[in-house]
Computed example of a mutant assay.
Amino acid sequence: FVPANKISPAEPPASTTTAQAPSTFVLLKKASVTTAAATSGPATTTALLAKKKKKVAAAASSKIQVKMLKHVEGTGHLGEVVRVTPAFFNNKLRPSGAAEKISDEAVAAEQKEKDEKRRQVLEAATDVQSKVTDMEISLTMKAGPEGHLFGSVGHKTILKELQSKFPKGALGKKVKISSIKDEEGNEISGDVKDLGTYTARIELLKDVEAKFTVTISKA
């Protein structure tokens, strides 16, 4: 029998301390790796993106501005201003006469000239529009008792008669009749085949139209 005050406290089993140590180390190592990845990951990605953007910007700044003198598939159309590498210009575009260098000042001057030309064309079309509107064109055709024409009146015939009222070329080369309607407002598909009064509409420019009256009487 051993007195209670003589009994030594039980020592923890050696295996317990030994088993826990590696587990704690592994957890700490994983936490360290996770923290490092979380810290360095976004920074590394941002740095790579910045580097890539810098390369793209450098490549763009090294290109030169040229005006296309011919259509080159994948590069540009005739008259278009594009940017290409000096090597591509010197090795392909210039030797083939497909492009020439052009300055910003020259581009601005060409644009100004185009704008002025558009303004003049629009002004001329608007002037013709005011003169054509409410104008009356008279044509005579042979017809039967019920008013059916012996033949027909096409757009070209009406347009030719309208052009005769103006100086040569005043209506422009691209003018065309966009529609013809009868007195009841029904659109005529194709040529006019009956006597009567019609409303024709011409397209002078994309957004400039004018309408006039066409009267077809019996000859």
Rank of each mutant, 00 (worst) to 15 (best):
A143R: 09
R119N: 12
P145R: 10
G147K: 02
T34N: 10
S179F: 03
H155D: 02
A50T: 10
E184D: 04
E73L: 13
Q65F: 12
S217G: 09
A36T: 08
G74R: 01
E183Q: 15
L122I: 00
P86G: 01
V56A: 05
S23R: 13
G144M: 11
D182E: 02
Q20H: 09
Q163G: 09
D191C: 00
K6G: 14
V56T: 12
T24E: 00
E146H: 15
T24G: 08
T44I: 15
P12T: 14
V153P: 04
E187Y: 03
F212H: 02
K206W: 01
P95A: 03
E183T: 15
K114V: 06
E73G: 09
V81S: 05
S217N: 12
V56L: 09
T17N: 10
G144D: 06
G41K: 11
T213W: 10
K168P: 04
E105H: 09
K51P: 11
T39S: 15
T215R: 00
S179R: 06
V214G: 00
S178A: 10
V132G: 02
L27F: 14
Q163Y: 10
T199D: 14
E187F: 04
K63V: 07
H155A: 05
D115M: 08
L122D: 07
Y198Q: 03
S130E: 00
K55Y: 13
K117Q: 00
S32Y: 09
E80I: 04
